[in-house]
Design a protein around this nucleic acid. Structure first.
Lengths: 193, 193
DNA sequence: AATTTCAGTGAGTGTGTACTCAGTAAAAGG
DNA sequence: CCTTTTACTGAGTACACACTCACTGAAATT
């Protein structure tokens, strides 16, 4: 990479960093591209050299962040094969980026269907891991033979709900932490024989 | 009421009807007040004679609709005191106005906190009824002595999740219907001794 | 019948914001 | 050293949309 390419990449990263900060603070939908540019310390027009339009920026941002998250999850799967430990670790990971996931849960229903599909696809990969761990548990006779997709929708739906209404559930601090124990407890009861 | 008052009320109703239709179709946040006025068959300015601003219209609309729903729920409570039947009836009521509740679930996280508090307050009244029925069941020894608020958050969270992502879960038709049986089944398992 | 009241009208205004494009300066290439 | 390429700039444009207000005409009041 020559000097120009390095500079270009650097600017792109600044835009994405700024977009992420603003995404966490108040979401992307109601934030102006001008504000993102200002926070990144670049001209408004520059943003559109790197992303053809606002949607592309959102997709770019979410793609990167969710990929990072996916990788961390994968690591986690390798390390744990008990569902309560996995769920505990999963919640801890979300908690680490709770602002991000809260904004995501809040705004997702308003995204264009293509982007929503992308996000749900990434979620489905995570579900797949949970699915396998539960399946193994059922085969071993540890868990009741539940309909796995159903119980996972129940689980992920609830977590999504906590995140999307975070500001109504907690004034400051973590929703995930608040509901951490009871979520695991109830989910384990669902799996209980 | 004289002729003028009747006419005024009629116009107000037309606005609310139109707003409800548009709310169901695509939500209120991304709909223009001009469009609502056109659908109601009135001038754009007229809308602002009846509601000082767009927010007031949204509050007016949701207040009326949620009050109607509350009343139907109350009726239901009187008639049934088994939790699975109550839940079944509750889901049926939501299904009857699924478009409305889907839009509500989708947009609620984006509303100003005051309006969100209002909506959550109405929901809390409904939860209160569920709470009582479960409590009675626990006292009778039918259900396990679970932490009722936790399991209710789990339940309402999941239902909210289905509704908010309705268009991702079903192409056409009812999400509530799709998840009806499994929701009841899992919830009853949570309550099982 | 004359006057007052008021619901309704719709062109107009102000604001916010996504996106453009002619111009600039520094890096790359010869 | 000169020419070309290109990342970047930021004032400008187009558009959408919430909300206003001078005006109209019919109903209510006198």
């Amino acid at each position: 990479m020559n000097k120009r390419q390095i500079q270009k990449q650097f600017t792109r990263d600044k835009i994405l960093d700024s977009a992420k900060q603003i995404f966490i603070e108040k979401g992307i939908i109601n934030s102006a591209t001008l504000q993102i540019a200002e926070k990144a310390g670049i001209a408004h027009g520059t943003l559109f050299l790197h992303f053809p339009n606002k949607d592309a920026l959102v997709i770019g941002l979410l793609d990167i962040e969710l990929l990072k998250f996916s990788d961390e999850i994968k690591q986690l799967i390798i390390e744990t094969d008990e569902i309560d430990k996995l769920l505990n670790q999963y919640l801890n990971l979300i908690k680490k980026e709770e602002g991000f996931f809260s904004s995501l849960a809040r705004e997702m229903p308003s995204y264009k269907s293509e982007l929503r599909r992308k996000i749900l696809f990434r979620e489905s990969l995570i579900r797949e891991h949970f699915h396998q761990v539960i399946e193994k548990g059922i085969r071993k006779g540890i868990y009741a033979s539940v309909d796995i997709p159903s119980v996972l929708t129940f689980l992920f739906g609830t977590i999504n709900y906590y995140l999307s209404l975070k500001s109504s559930f907690v004034h400051s601090g973590s929703v995930i932490e608040k509901f951490h124990d009871q979520t695991i407890e109830i989910f384990m009861k669902i799996l209980k024989k």
